[in-house]
Design a protein around this nucleic acid. Structure first.
Length: 219
DNA sequence: ACATTAAGTGATT
DNA sequence: AATCACTTAATGT
């Protein structure tokens, strides 16, 4: 048990020691529980109450917005070192989640009970900065998401989406179907197929059945 | 060999 | 860019 504790602490330290002071890391490790979540599982669903805040150690979480008819659109991805800053507001005000977090790549994280979040804002300067910083970063991501929808054509959106995926997974070889892409971008499979073919011909990607190699990154 | 799933395509709106 | 209807290709059993 103590052995496991140590390794978790090491893991947390590795990603967060340049942000948090030793005492805070100690406290995080003490009060959080470490967990793995398998790819495909929901970390949080729309309407769920937030009980814990995840601090990502490994893996990727896809943040999705959904309308009443179950239509979805992907907003952004969370990577190791990230947290879902939006979830802080949910915690402090005991609100329900307005997003869904789907585990995209097997997740390793420490889950911090929400009751500490508030206390630490006053207690630790580094925690305060971390929260504000996360918020700022997520805000920028949201603006980017809006920009994509408003100003980019589907071809650019697709390439941006594929680039982003390749980046968060540290792998330019993606295993994904046209249908899955269509769902994430909220368009139809036929459209994805046609644009993908263009991108393939333009040598920006190389695609075969259920696989895409990203050859050119967006911007 | 057959069934299933993924991808490609023309026509229409 | 979306939808329909259909074809073709890849893959699993």
């Amino acid at each position: 048990m103590s052995n496991e504790n140590l390794s978790i602490k090491e893991k947390v330290k590795k990603l967060y020691s340049n942000i948090f002071e030793e005492a805070l890391i100690d406290e995080i490790v003490k009060v959080s529980h470490y967990n793995k979540v398998e790819s495909g599982d929901f970390l949080i669903d729309i309407g769920d109450n937030m009980t814990h805040i995840p601090l990502l150690i490994d893996g990727v979480v896809k943040i999705v917005r959904q309308d009443d008819e179950g239509e979805e659109i992907v907003l952004y991805f969370l990577e190791p070192g990230d947290t879902c800053a939006i979830s802080f507001a949910n915690c402090i005000n005991k609100k329900k989640s307005i997003f869904r977090g789907v585990v995209e790549k097997d997740l390793e994280a420490v889950f911090l009970p929400v009751e500490y979040v508030d206390d630490w804002l006053a207690k630790y300067r580094s925690w305060r900065y971390f929260i504000i910083d996360s918020y700022h970063f997520r805000l920028l991501e949201m603006v980017e998401a809006i920009d994509s929808l408003a100003f980019l054509n589907m071809s650019e959106r697709l390439l941006k989406y594929l680039s982003g995926k390749a980046k968060v997974s540290n792998n330019i070889d993606l295993q994904i179907t046209h249908q899955e892409i269509a769902d994430d971008l909220h368009t139809s499979r036929v459209v994805v197929t046609r644009i993908l073919k263009q991108l393939h011909d333009d040598k920006k990607i190389f695609s075969t059945r259920s696989k895409i190699k990203v050859l050119e990154f967006f911007k």
